[in-house]
Design a protein around this nucleic acid. Structure first.
Lengths: 356, 356
DNA sequence: CTGAAAGCGCTTACAG
DNA sequence: CTGAAAGCGCTTACAG
């Protein structure tokens, strides 16, 4: 276990011990070339005698020009990113998508302190990269990757570049959900958005706040809702979490005389918080308040079947992984835009008629 | 972006263009050697003219004998592992701990299909590895790493080897929590455990099930509880989740005539589920039922201040990262066992006296 | 402060 | 089926 113990045997040592050339020994390990069974056996035996654990991946990757590693660039620190179940599902999809490569996933962050890290976006030994989520730094990262000649694909990136991009129909999906609420008879609808600006401001959805918006996803979903309910306002949350949904909804429902009959939440976690706030106030969902989510995740512990716009998060990740595989085999990668589907659960119903 | 576009310039090209030797060019990039500012500038200018993005990390790592990558071995697929907030915190701690290395984190799984992956535990270009959680395959992984001469540290691993290990006082902590319940006056206590066997059997905590236990953590925490309540029984959950806690508690509380006055849950997520089940049944926590958790995470959306055994998950990760740094600098790494602290929240109280 | 040389450990055409 | 040779792109003693 000491890093500076006895020198590790190399392939040359193994070859010498087996009495074959180094090329033959190499072939015996890679399994691809034509080697007689007897020779192969001899090489493997020599290896095990010497305690040789297989070709050094560093040398192999230099020679082959491939490291077998795909980078995943998160816009925030590991902990923050993985609090979002949608991101975890995407990560899982990515690992499915790149499975044919047998590649590993290297976590990278976008935090800008490039020189600090031996391994950063500008220097990581990766064959390709998947960028998750947009960030102010995205353009810088993309430029660095372009210079290095490393293929990249963005999920919900709004890259403005020629990168392939994997996205969903944020606007249309939300419009569809809003349309469903209108058909149920709702007219007084409030919205709880994902963070809209870089500061993740928590508060009323003012025009000023919206002008400083840097989050494409939140803006698109809001626009979709407003195509049906042009006057709809609400609150922006500081994160996608139950807690934030709870706080936002407490504010929206504070005045019993002036409550919306439905709330559109831009994520399922926010929706779960909204439901919790409503029930806290003695309201029934969906009797007194309809709640619409977005994502289609299973919220652990939520006892409702949430009405939501189910987005194919795993498929998005998988598509990103597949795009990586395509690019690495020289094929032109495809951008893809997935469709979310309205799942009607038990959290939406017609509004109670006033005094009826 | 095409992988087979024009050949990337190399350091030799840059040196030629700048009219210096390759060694000087290398020094100009690494920043460590003595190079005159003028020369350095000339090299950097040549690099930018050629579109050279810096030294190739593959070549650098072969030459240096270090890849700058630390592997994290999860016992299950990415999605499953990251559903557990404790693991995410540990991951975050690891990245803090290895920060001095500037290294990246490579996700590896323990799933055994070694030959399938170009990059697996037996072949990943990692300088060191952190093993998270125990698994039946742990021994195999450790042996592979030992052969490769790659330093490793295990978190809650029970490795039985000479690996440094980062753990917590599972037994003593639980005993302390149980002792607190006893002091409050509880005598009828049930337990909801983490999965105890490889199959993650969900059901009553029978002796037979416990005999097939492979999970050290669950066993240790159970043992701690039984030091105070030797007769205590309960149910094993199929995972650490609110949903599983809910199901287990529904079973434990099914018979109104025969309910425990307190439940010890082996994780906070399980505890949150227990609370939910109790409230569903119209019971009050802590009035009708005391609930003790384990972990000290903030459960998103939980409106109680959970009484729990707060373990320092981030610190555990950080300690593992620090052990990696130590091993890589040739120092003997330290095993560490952290102490969990009893956080008394609002989910525990004396039992209601019968008919009082 | 700069340069010439060796070599990290492998894989891959190319001959035989 | 096997071997001799080149070279992937760098960094690092070693001279000067």
């Amino acid at each position: 276990m000491q890093p500076d113990a006895a020198p590790r045997p190399t392939l040359a040592d193994v070859a010498a011990r087996a009495g074959v050339s180094q090329s033959t020994a190499s072939l015996a390990f890679s399994g691809s070339g034509p080697v007689s069974d007897a020779t192969k056996e001899r090489v493997l035996a020599a290896a095990s005698e010497l305690g040789y654990a297989g070709p050094d991946p560093r040398a192999r990757s230099l020679r082959r020009g491939r490291s077998g590693i795909v980078g995943v660039v998160l816009e925030e620190r590991v902990r923050a990113a993985f609090l979002d179940p949608v991101k975890i599902q995407m990560l899982d999809g990515i690992s499915e998508g790149i499975a044919p490569l047998g590649a590993g996933l290297l976590l990278l962050t976008d935090t800008g302190v490039a020189g600090e890290s031996a391994v950063s976006i500008e220097s990581a030994p990766v064959d390709a990269v998947v960028l998750i989520g947009c960030s102010p730094r995205l353009a810088v990262s993309i430029e660095a990757l372009r210079r290095r000649g490393i293929p990249a694909v963005a999920i919900e990136g709004d890259t403005g570049e020629d990168l392939p991009e994997i996205s969903i129909d944020n606007l249309q999906a939300t419009r569809r959900g809003a349309e469903y609420l209108r058909q149920l008879g709702h007219t007084d609808v409030a919205i709880v958005t994902l963070p809209v600006d870089a500061a993740r401001t928590r508060g009323p959805l003012t025009d000023e706040l919206l002008r400083s918006s840097t989050a494409a996803t939140a803006s698109q979903r809001l626009a979709g809702a407003r195509e049906i309910f042009p006057e709809a306002t609400g609150r922006s949350a500081g994160a996608s979490s139950i807690e934030e949904g709870l706080e936002a909804a407490r504010a929206l429902l504070a005045d019993p005389a002036n409550r919306p009959t439905a709330i559109i939440a831009q994520s399922d976690l926010l929706a779960a918080g909204v439901i919790q706030a409503a029930e806290e106030l003695g309201m029934h969902v969906p009797g007194d308040l309809s709640v619409l989510g977005f994502d289609g995740i299973r919220v652990d512990g939520l006892q409702h079947d949430l009405t939501t716009l189910a987005q194919p998060s795993v498929a998005k990740g998988r598509a990103a992984g597949e795009a990586v595989v395509q690019m690495l085999s020289g094929e032109p990668p495809e951008s893809r835009c997935f469709t979310s589907t309205l799942h009607v659960g038990d959290t939406t119903a017609p509004p109670r008629t006033p005094a009826g």
